[in-house]
């Protein structure tokens, strides 16, 4: 395990912050926690390179704003955003703003550990494109026009019902298309699909 790999946690909920820190610490990461985005921002330039885990919904400065400010200062931290239920549109925005992954709360510990590992890998080889994302570009061509439309709807953060309405098809049909899109793109989760699709250059509506 990466004894000198740094992980920074920004979350306004003390219990979530502390527990995640304990978990990552138990897994051998060097962890530092911040209760406010501003605190992390203030400390960021002096911090060793590491992975940032930020809650997307926080008072004062949210995860998206934090990403923007970091970019402004040319500070680069591979970022994972944590979202609550039904925050897909926010998550997509975070991904477009450069976040590597988003994870929906409540999450399985393994999901966040995998994501952190991937982010730290990225830190070591920043210019290397995510291999599964590269593959996704090729897979994109496998999608039918209708599947492509459904994918774009998903990237816009729309629920199935809205996509169905926009495309004048039944929600059931959208669900079938959605499953095919996931299969064809080789994505195991919505966040992976969003990541692949963005990497493959799919534009959202």
């Amino acid at each position: 395990m990466p004894g000198n790999a740094h992980v920074y946690i920004v979350d306004d909920d003390a219990a979530v912050r502390d527990s995640l820190s304990v978990l990552l610490d138990a897994c051998g990461y060097q962890v530092r926690t911040f209760g406010l985005a501003q605190e992390f921002l203030d400390a960021a330039s002096a911090l060793p390179p590491g992975c940032l885990i930020a809650d997307i919904r926080m008072p004062e400065m949210d995860g998206l704003e934090l990403q923007r400010r970091l970019k402004e200062r040319s500070l680069s931290f591979p970022t994972i955003v944590i979202t609550g239920h039904g925050d897909v549109p926010l998550a997509v925005r975070a991904m477009k703003a450069g976040a590597l992954d988003f994870i929906e709360k409540p999450y399985a510990s393994q999901a966040i550990l995998n994501s952190v590992a991937a982010a730290l890998l990225r830190l070591r080889a920043p210019d290397e494109r995510d291999p599964s994302a590269v593959a996704a570009t090729a897979k994109l061509d496998l999608l039918s026009p209708r599947e492509r439309e459904v994918l774009e709807g998903l990237l816009a953060g729309l629920p199935n019902k809205s996509i169905a309405y926009d495309l004048a098809i039944s929600p059931r049909t959208v669900e079938i298309h959605r499953a095919r899109v996931m299969d064809k793109m080789g994505a195991r989760s919505l966040s992976e699909l969003v990541r692949f699709a963005l990497a493959a250059g799919v534009r959202t509506k």
């Binding site: 979530v16 527990s19 978990l23 138990a26 609550g84 239920h85 999450y107 399985a108």
Partner: peptide
Amino acid sequence: NQPLTAVTNYLEAGRHL
């Protein structure tokens, strides 16, 4: 979601240790 996430994290960390 908040406490449940924390519970999961603490227990996972414990198991790991």
